[in-house]
C-alpha cells in the first residue's frame, strides 16, 4: 500500500495537474524536506530555534557564488554544506559538552539564526539586503540549464524534490536503525543514564545535529533554485526558524511522516484560508494559523499524525484486549 501511494504521488503531475496545484505540491514536498530535517534532531529533545541559519546558508551561499563568482550550484552546494556542517559543529559541540539544554539551547540557537539573518542584511551590497536577491537567470534562451541548476519546467523540480524528500525519510529510518530505539530515547530523556550505559552522548548528539544541519542546508539550496528568489526573512531568522518548529509540531515530530503531514497541513491551511477569504484580509491566514498552533500545543502536543496513530494504537489495543 505504501508503494501504491508513492506511485500515485509520483504519477500525480502526469495526470493533468494544473500548474498551480503542482506548484503547491512541490512547495509542500520542499517544506516537508526541511521539516523532516529539523525533526531528525528535534525529536531527540534538541529543540532548535536556529535552523533558519542552515537554510539561509544553503540558499545564500549558492546564489552568491553563482551571481558574483559565476560558480555553478554544483560547486556552490558542497561549499554551503561544508559551511553549514562547520557552523553546526561550532554551535553544537559546546552546547552538548556543557549540557546546554531546554530553554537555553533554544535561545542559543535562536541567536544563531538571527546572526545569520543580520549578516545577510548587513552584506547588503552583495546580498541585496532585506529586499532579497534573484539568481542571475540562465534561462534566457533555453528552457533549462543543468549547470545553473535552473529548470523552467515544474515537472523536473517535482521529481528532484520528490527524490530529496524520499531521501530525507530514508535518512530518518537509517538514523533509527543505526542508533537503536534505546539509545535514541536514552539521550533524549536521561542523558546521564545514557552516558552511564556507555553511550557517548555528546558525539551522538553532535552527529545528529550536523546531519540535520546538512539536510536543512540542502533544503535551502533547493528552495532558492526553485523559487529563483531569496530574501533574508524567508530563509533565515527567527520567523522561519519558528515556522519549522511549528510545522513539525502540527504534524507530529515523533512519527516519520509527521513533519510531512505538518508541511501539507500548514500549506493547505494557508492556501485554503487565502482562497476562502480572498486577498483583502491580509494576515488572516496567519492569524488562524497562530491560533491553531496554540491550540495544538495545548490540546494535541503530539501533532496530527502523532495523535491519530496514538488513537489507532489505543483502538487496536482495546480490540486485542477484547
Amino acid at each position: 500500500m505504501k508503494y501504491a501511494a508513492l506511485a500515485l504521488l509520483a504519477a500525480a503531475p502526469l495526470l493533468g495537474m494544473g500548474n498551480y496545484p503542482l506548484h503547491l505540491l512541490i512547495l509542500c514536498l520542499l517544506w516537508a524536506c526541511v521539516y523532516t530535517s529539523w525533526s531528525v534532531m528535534g525529536r531527540l529533545g534538541m529543540v532548535s530555534f536556529g535552523h533558519g541559519a542552515f537554510m539561509g546558508i544553503g540558499a545564500y551561499v549558492v546564489v552568491m557564488g553563482w551571481n558574483h563568482y559565476g560558480l555553478s550550484p554544483w560547486i556552490g552546494t558542497p561549499i554551503a554544506l561544508a559551511l553549514a556542517a562547520a557552523v553546526a559543529f561550532l554551535i553544537g559541540y559546546p552546547c552538548f559538552r556543557f549540557k546546554i539544554v531546554g530553554h537555553y539551547f533554544a535561545l542559543v540557537t535562536l541567536a544563531l539564526s538571527e546572526v545569520t539573518r543580520l549578516i545577510i542584511v548587513a552584506l547588503r551590497d552583495q546580498t541585496g539586503g532585506s529586499l532579497g536577491v534573484t539568481p542571475k537567470t540562465a534561462l534566457a534562451d533555453v528552457s533549462y540549464s543543468l549547470n545553473a541548476l535552473q529548470f523552467s519546467s515544474k515537472l523536473v523540480w517535482f521529481y528532484v524534490i520528490l527524490a530529496f524528500w524520499l531521501g530525507g525519510l530514508w535518512i530518518w529510518k537509517k538514523v533509527d536503525e543505526s542508533m537503536g530505539r534505546l539509545a535514541l530515547e536514552a539521550i533524549s530523556q536521561e542523558e546521564d543514564a545514557a552516558a552511564s550505559i556507555g553511550i557517548n552522548v555528546t558525539k551522538l548528539k553532535l552527529g545528529v545535529t550536523i546531519l540535520s544541519a546538512l539536510m536543512t542546508c540542502m533544503g535551502g539550496v533547493l528552495y532558492a533554485q526553485y523559487q529563483l528568489y531569496v530574501n533574508p526573512d524567508t530563509v533565515s531568522g527567527i520567523g522561519i526558524s519558528l515556522q519549522m518548529v511549528f510545522g513539525v509540531i502540527a504534524g507530529g515530530m515523533f512519527v516519520r511522516l509527521g513533519p510531512t503531514v505538518g508541511a501539507a497541513f500548514t500549506l493547505l491551511l494557508a492556501e485554503g484560508l487565502r482562497l476562502w477569504f480572498g486577498n483583502q484580509y491580509h494576515g488572516l491566514d496567519l492569524t488562524v494559523y497562530g491560533l491553531m498552533l496554540v491550540l495544538f500545543i495545548i490540546y494535541m502536543p503530539k501533532g496530527i499524525l502523532g495523535a491519530a496513530s496514538g488513537a489507532l494504537e489505543k483502538r487496536r489495543m482495546v480490540r486485542a484486549g477484547a
Binding site: V47, H103, A106, L242, V245, F246, I249, G283, L284, D285, L286, T287, Y289, G290, L291, L293, V294, F296, I297, I298
Partner: peptide, 14 residues
C-alpha cells in the same frame, strides 16, 4: 516555550 511562540505568530498576524 513553543506555545508562546504560537502566540507570537498570532499577535503578529492579527
Amino acid at each position: 516555550l513553543l506555545v508562546t511562540g504560537g502566540v507570537l505568530f498570532f499577535l503578529q498576524a492579527a
